[in-house]
Nucleic acid binder design. Structure first.
Lengths: 197, 197
DNA sequence: GTCTATATAAGGATAGAC
DNA sequence: GTCTATCCTTATATAGAC
């Protein structure tokens, strides 16, 4: 099970961006100061501006990098004509789980702090999210038509699946009790197979 | 299906607290100014301090009111010895769904902004959450022992169930397409019964 | 590319008149 | 209980020396 990691080189800007992701996650975008960030990176606040344009730019970088990762995986998945709807949904859920496990800081920022994006970035981000949800809905609809998925509201299913994996945020604090693999299998079992024996 | 509403009288402080919940939800705790809040309530910022002690106190009020609501429901549920584990879990999930539908502002603040609680309130809040999760785990464990629930990691199940309902946040923006009742039934069906036909 | 110093704005909260 | 005026701190970002 390959860990999903950042493919970018460790440029100065990249170091700053990942430090920002961590701080934005822990303290929130608004409560994170450029002095906090500079301290973590090891420079004075003013020096940051030789590498980035603004605090907002860092948020944009983080949010769209994550949005693109999810969209790219879905694109790749949909080129495969042989998988069934259930298999596609399961693949999407597993990808989300791994992203929440491997890239928690960035994923949480994209989820919780994207509201601080300036226009037009915020509108673009929300629109991309809407389209992504719609594409997943269509996979569910296809599965219902094929008789593979029970008759259920596709929109509600997508909301449920995408939100369910957010529980991983809390798992990160108590990793010892259960492994990443166990977590993934249990979540998939619950979401695809239900609880009843 | 009774709507879950606030039982408190509409005192001045209550009006301020609910306005704060809405602002904290929309803009985040840190980005919400006392001048914003005062504007929504219809007074000057300084006047707020005749009713509240601080901005932090408002956050405490919101977070613990919600925590208490969830704990109270679970207490009530556990006094009933006749219900099965599956029925108890379903009742908890339905209660969460209705809280997310009926009291979105407060529930979102308790989820996303509780990290801004000052000590010792933050520690207390997190501890109460931990205990609540543990109590739900025990219901799952009982269901597994009874052969009613499939063999699955109880902790992962609880994280999944509690997070899944957070999708309701997005439903609030597009209510028209699907009713609250439909949403509730689809979510319960997915979480308890799974997706496969 | 990093620093010190600073401009400019906004934050929470208080004092004291009415 | 509400107001105006203000204290004090902190915020993002820039200017200009090195």
């Amino acid at each position: 099970m390959a860990r999903i990691s950042n493919t970018k080189n460790s440029t100065r800007k990249e170091v700053i961006t990942l430090a920002a992701a961590r701080l934005f996650r822990e303290k929130g975008f608004s409560a994170t100061g450029m002095r906090d960030l500079a301290g973590d990176v090891g420079v004075e606040a003013a020096s940051l501006y030789n590498h980035i344009r603004s605090k907002s730019e860092l948020l944009q970088e983080i949010c769209f990098r994550i949005a693109n990762a999810f969209t790219a995986q879905l694109n790749e998945l949909e080129t495969d004509q042989k998988t069934t709807s259930i298999q596609k949904i399961e693949a999407v859920v597993r990808f989300h789980i791994r992203m929440w496990i491997d890239r928690l800081d960035e994923v949480l920022v994209a989820n919780n702090e994207s509201k601080y994006l300036e226009e037009p970035y915020h509108a673009t981000f929300m629109n991309e999210r809407r389209i992504y949800v719609r594409r997943l809905e269509m996979i569910i609809e296809q599965g219902i038509r094929d008789g593979q998925i029970r008759i259920i509201e596709p929109y509600a299913v997508v909301l449920t699946l995408l939100s369910a994996v957010r529980g991983i945020e809390f798992w990160h604090r108590t990793k010892k009790n259960i492994s990443a693999a166990q977590l993934e299998e249990s979540m998939v079992a619950n979401l695809i197979g239900g609880l009843k024996k």
